[in-house]
């Protein structure tokens, strides 16, 4: 951030601040302040949906005499959290050179259970055993967070019933399917006193009396009695509560989330730099817009409403004389929220 601090708000010029209020193996609670809601929300979204983990994606069922349908069991298997430590060394199956799947892009797990006693049998994630070569010794192992170390219950078998199946776990992100989500939930909160009135609280007689205060209410100054509404106020302090589903530790989820965001940006910067070689210097034969700069002056070959001064603002000058008035952008302007 090499901007002149004078341009920024005083608080924001100091740079973002992170304060952790709770951290253990399941969750991390932290406050991100001196940041904008746009960035805070990007971080939330990326942690929720774009961190790669590993989950069962293919199930081959050899035997299933349980009461549950094959696809029902396959779905349950997909949702079992698997340890994602070292998943960065695993390839996406679609990017691997192999035919189908191999040890570089997948982890194989077997499940074989038969109820031989006369009591119903419970089949847990513990009964799912990784087999074959793996990137490392923990990747793809089911996660047990219960005291007994059994993991989630997959199905139950009556005497004589049997399941035998083979699972292929692959790398993926939650944007594709929620089973790849590293977080069970991400709490995201700001403005505990609703000073900004982003929330319209429902009430019977008095909202203040009926709604319980947020756990962060004591962190921020409550509004004074009869305080006028501040129209310029923007949210500045964001309270995150990242709860892990088990595949990655909670602080890793935060770090990985930022990393994913950075990789996204790095990829775009790289592409922009590549395009600039043939794109910025007037020779627009590349994959950029065919209309951009085809003429000698950079604007020939088509008539643009922007031609008479690209940086003339339609926002500065009111009235109907703006060159943007008849462009498609003019019509679509309501979309640019």
């Amino acid at each position: 951030m090499d901007y002149d601090p004078m341009v920024m708000d005083d608080a924001e010029a100091l740079g973002p601040v992170v304060k952790i209020s709770q951290a253990d193996s399941v969750r991390v609670k932290y406050e991100l302040s001196n940041s904008d809601i746009a960035f805070a929300n990007s971080l939330r979204r990326v942690m929720l949906a774009e961190i790669p983990t590993i989950a069962i994606d293919l199930v081959e069922i050899e035997e299933n005499s349980s009461v549950l349908a094959d696809e029902f069991i396959a779905h349950r298997l997909g949702l079992i959290p698997l340890n994602a430590e070292g998943v960065e060394n695993l390839l996406y199956a679609r990017e691997c050179d192999c035919d189908g799947c191999c040890e570089h892009c997948s982890v194989k797990l077997m499940l074989h259970a038969k109820c031989t006693g006369d009591e119903n049998m419970h089949v847990f994630a513990r009964d799912l055993v990784p087999v074959g070569e793996r990137v490392n010794q923990v990747l793809g192992t089911p996660v047990f967070s219960d005291a007994e170390g059994l993991g989630p219950l997959i199905l139950k078998l009556r005497p004589g019933q049997e399941v035998k199946l083979e699972c292929i776990a692959k790398k993926g992100i939650a944007k594709e399917h929620a089973k790849w989500a590293p977080s069970a939930a991400i709490g995201f909160e700001y403005d505990p006193h609703n000073k900004l009135r982003h929330i319209d609280l429902w009430y019977e007689t008095d909202a203040k009396a009926e709604w319980p205060p947020s756990e962060y209410a004591s962190w921020e100054e409550p509004p004074q009695e009869g305080e006028p509404f501040d129209y310029d106020a923007v949210p500045n302090r964001f309270y995150f509560n990242v709860e892990s589903a088990g595949s990655l530790p909670p602080d890793t989820i935060v770090s990985e989330g930022i990393k994913v965001l950075q990789q996204k940006l790095a990829g775009l910067i790289h592409e922009l730099a590549e395009g600039e070689g043939d794109g910025m210097n007037g020779d627009y034969n590349g994959p950029r817009s065919p209309e951009y700069g085809t003429g000698a002056d950079g604007f020939g070959g088509y008539t643009t409403p922007f031609g008479n001064g690209g940086n003339q603002s339609s926002w500065g000058g009111a009235g109907g004389t703006t060159p943007y008035g008849t462009t498609p952008y003019g019509a679509g302007q309501s979309n640019w929220s």
């Binding site: 951030m1 601040v17 951290a23 991390v28 932290y30 991100l32 960035f39 770090s255 965001l261 940006l265």
Partner: peptide, 17 residues
Amino acid sequence: DLQDLCDVVSDKFIEAR
């Protein structure tokens, strides 16, 4: 700039942790 912001938040988080 967004990359720089990510760097700062990442460092601040690790420090706070």
